Simulated assay, not measured.
Amino acid sequence: MATKILLPIDHTDQNSWKKALPVALEQAKFYGAELHAVSVIPEIIQLPNLPAGYGSGAKAHVQSAVEAILARNGAKDVPVRIAEGSVYREILKLAHKDGYDLIIMASAEGEFPNYEIGPNLARVVRNAHCTVMVVRG
Rank of each mutant, 00 (worst) to 15 (best):
L6C: 04
V80G: 09
V66D: 01
S64V: 06
N49P: 01
G55S: 07
G32W: 07
K76P: 03
I41P: 09
I69W: 02
S56H: 11
S39Q: 04
I104T: 00
R136I: 01
K19R: 15
Q27R: 14
A71W: 00
V38W: 10
S56G: 04
D13R: 14
Q63G: 05
L35C: 10
A68G: 11
F112I: 08
Q27I: 05
A128K: 08
A33Y: 03
S56K: 14
V125C: 13
E90H: 01
Y54E: 02
L94S: 02
E111V: 11
L70P: 00
P119N: 15
I91G: 08
A108Q: 15
R126T: 08
N114G: 06
N127D: 14
V78C: 13
L70G: 00
T3W: 06
N114C: 13
M1T: 12
L94F: 01
P79A: 04
N15F: 11
A122M: 00
P48A: 02
M1H: 14
L25H: 02
N127T: 10
V125Y: 14
I45R: 09
I41A: 07
S86K: 08
T12Q: 15
P42A: 10
V66M: 01
E26V: 00
K59N: 11
Y88L: 01
R136W: 03
N15K: 10
L47M: 13
N127C: 12
A75G: 13
H129A: 12
E26L: 09
K19H: 13
P22Q: 06
H36N: 13
V40M: 07
A33C: 01
K29S: 12
K59H: 08
Q14F: 12
T131G: 09
G85V: 06
N127I: 05
V38Y: 02
A122R: 12
